[in-house]
C-alpha cells in the first residue's frame, strides 16, 4: 500500500536526450523538443512529479491543476496513433500520476509518504501494531461514544467532533513538519490516521 518513495538523490532532473532522435527535451523532460516524442517516466518522488516542494503544507489547488494538466497531456488516447513505445510510456505516466495524486491529495497518506521520504517511516504504516497509550485510549473512547450514540443526531455530533479534531491535528502535523520535528510528525500522523479511519467507518455505518 505504501510505496517506498524514491531516494532524495533522484530529485535531480533527468538526463536530457530523446530516446528516439537524441534531441533536447522540454523543461519537464516529458517531450522531445525536436521530434515531439513522449519520453519514459523518470524515477522521481511524487512531489517532484508535480513540481511541488517536498512539504506537508502543499497548495491543493496547485496539485489539482498540475495533475489534470499532466493527465491530459499524458492520456493514452492521445498516443493511439503514435509509436508503440510512446503508447507504453503514456500508460506508465498515467499510472504514476494517479498513484502520486492519490498519495499527495489525502493528508494521512501524504504525511506517511513524507515521513518515509525523510527516512523516518511511521510505525503502523503497514500491518504493524502500535502501543501509543494516549492515542489508543482516545481512539477507544471515540468508538465507545459512537457505539453509545442512540440517535442519528447523537452519532452525527460524534462524527462532527471527530472532524473538528481532524482539522486541529492536521494543523499540528503541518507545524511539526514545518519545524522538521519528525518524531512529533509521526505521532500526529498516527493520531490523524485513527481519526480518518474513525470518520470513514462512522460514515459507512450511517449510509442507508
Amino acid at each position: 500500500m505504501t510505496a517506498q518513495p524514491a531516494p532524495t538523490s533522484d530529485r535531480a532532473p533527468a538526463s536530457a536526450a530523446c530516446w528516439s532522435c537524441s534531441g533536447t527535451l522540454d523543461r519537464d523532460g516529458l517531450f522531445c523538443e525536436s521530434c515531439g516524442a513522449l519520453q519514459p517516466p523518470r524515477i522521481v518522488d511524487h512531489f517532484v512529479r508535480f513540481g511541488l516542494p517536498a512539504a506537508f503544507d502543499i497548495a491543493i489547488p496547485a496539485l489539482d491543476r498540475r495533475y489534470f494538466e499532466l493527465q491530459r497531456r499524458m492520456h493514452p488516447d492521445r498516443f493511439a496513433a503514435r509509436l508503440p513505445k510512446e503508447r507504453e510510456y503514456s500508460l506508465q505516466h498515467a499510472a504514476n500520476l494517479n498513484d502520486a495524486f492519490q498519495t499527495l491529495k489525502a493528508p494521512v497518506r501524504r504525511a506517511e509518504y513524507l515521513l518515509a521520504l525523510k527516512g523516518r517511516p511511521m510505525r503502523g504504516s503497514g500491518q504493524e501494531t502500535v502501543d501509543d497509550e494516549e492515542i489508543l485510549v482516545h481512539a477507544m473512547a471515540m468508538r465507545e461514544a459512537l457505539a453509545e450514540a442512540n440517535t442519528p443526531a447523537a452519532a452525527d455530533a460524534v462524527v462532527a467532533d471527530a472532524c473538528a479534531q481532524f482539522e486541529r491535528v492536521t494543523k499540528d502535523l503541518a507545524a511539526a513538519f514545518a519545524a522538521n520535528d519528525l518524531a512529533a510528525a509521526a505521532r500526529q500522523t498516527l493520531r490523524l490516521k485513527y481519526l480518518d479511519k474513525f470518520v470513514e467507518d462512522a460514515r459507512e455505518r450511517r449510509r442507508p
Partner: peptide, 13 residues
C-alpha cells in the same frame, strides 16, 4: 494491554 492496528483503525484492550 492496549494495542492498535492503525491500518484498520483497530483498538484492542
Amino acid at each position: 494491554g492496549l494495542v492498535g492496528a492503525p491500518a484498520c483503525g483497530d483498538v484492542m484492550k
